[in-house]
Every structure is written in structure tokens, then in C-alpha cells.
Amino acid sequence: MTKSNEPAIDIGLDDAAREKAAGILSVALADTFTAYLKIHNYHWNVTGPQFRQLHTAFEEQYTEMHDSIDEIAERIRALGHKAPGSLTAFSKLTTISEAAENATSDEMVRDVLSTHETLTRVLRKSEGELGELGDTASADMLVGRIAASEKAAWMLRAMLA
């Protein structure tokens, strides 16, 4: 989808593959941003006996996700497509639910755990689809995102044990 004054993109993926990859990555971007926002919300609003531990854990998680949001968006741009960047666009694309209002600290942990597990499943499927398209760079990027969400989920499960 290059403009007439931009050079054609010749990276070994045809227009259809790049468009499909950008669509897959747009969902990954929306999911990652929605998870980031949820975790940041819980970081701000957590209370109770585990406040310090959860406040810190949530901050570590949303901080790690922050840089990945930019990485995913820039990959979409490298494929020659516009990255979604509005709450409206993200809400149409995401598979992640918003933060629960008035959640207890235990409910927050369970919700963030479920969010990371959902994110892992969606990203794993997307990674496979990108691999089938031959977009190894995008697939590889999602492998790192999968590992990060799996690690975060493991740590949250340990808190609930």
C-alpha cells in the first residue's frame, strides 16, 4: 500500500502477504496495548496487604509491554501499512477485556493472569500464521512476546499458590 511517490516495497513478501501480516500484527498490537492499559490501571488502583508487591509486579509487566507496543507498530509500518493507534481501533481489534472496575487485589491478579494466558494463545496462533506467510521477522518478534507473557503468567500463578 505505497503511495505513488513512495518506492515499491520489495522485501520478499508480496502485497497480499504483507497486508495479511499487517492485519495479524494489528490484532497483536491492539491486544498488547489493551493488556498494557489494564495492567497499568491495576498498578494505579491496587490496595490491600499485598499492595507493594502487586504495585511493583504490575509496574514491571506494563513497563516490559510498553516497548513492545512500539516494536509491533513499527513492524506494521515496515510492511507498508498504517498501524492502528486509537482506542476505537484497538477496541474493534482486541481479544482482551478491559480492566474490571473495583476489583480486589486477588481479582486483579487472576484477571492479569487470564489476560497473559489469552495473549499467549492468540500470539502463538498469530506467530504460526505469520510463519506460513513467510514473514519470519514478524513471527520471530511474536515469539519474544509469547515468552514474556508466559513468564508473567508463571509469576502470577506463583503469587496465587
Rank of each mutant, 00 (worst) to 15 (best):
V112G: 04
G12E: 13
E117Q: 15
A153K: 05
A147E: 15
A89E: 15
A99Q: 07
S86F: 02
H81C: 11
T95F: 01
S86K: 04
E132V: 00
G144N: 09
D15F: 04
G144S: 09
L130Y: 10
A21T: 03
K125D: 15
A100Q: 15
L54V: 02
T63M: 05
R157W: 04
R157L: 05
Y36D: 04
K92G: 07
I69E: 15
D106G: 03
R52V: 11
K92L: 08
A78H: 04
D14G: 12
G23C: 14
A139S: 12
R157S: 04
T104H: 12
A89G: 06
H66T: 15
L160Q: 09
W154E: 14
M65C: 01
A35M: 08
D111K: 03
E19T: 14
A89Y: 02
R75E: 07
L160Y: 01
L160A: 07
S68W: 13
L54Q: 07
Y62M: 04
G134D: 11
T34G: 01
R121G: 06
N102P: 14
L130H: 07
D135M: 05
L133W: 02
S138D: 08
A30P: 03
A73I: 07
T63I: 08
W154M: 10
D14H: 06
D15H: 10
K82L: 14
W44M: 06
L113T: 01
N5K: 07
I9V: 13
H43D: 06
V46Q: 12
R124I: 00
L93I: 00
L156I: 00
D111I: 01
E64D: 15
K151N: 10
R75T: 05
L142I: 10
A152D: 06
R18D: 05
R110C: 04
W154Q: 14
N41G: 00
H55R: 07
E129Q: 14
I146C: 11
M108Q: 09
K151H: 08
F58T: 02
G134F: 01
M65F: 14
L142Y: 11
G134T: 03
P84F: 02
S86G: 03
T34N: 03
T56C: 09
T34H: 00
L130M: 10
N41T: 01
H40Y: 05
L160C: 05
S114Q: 13
S26R: 01
L37R: 05
G134N: 06
T47H: 12
A99M: 08
P49K: 14
E59M: 07
L113N: 07
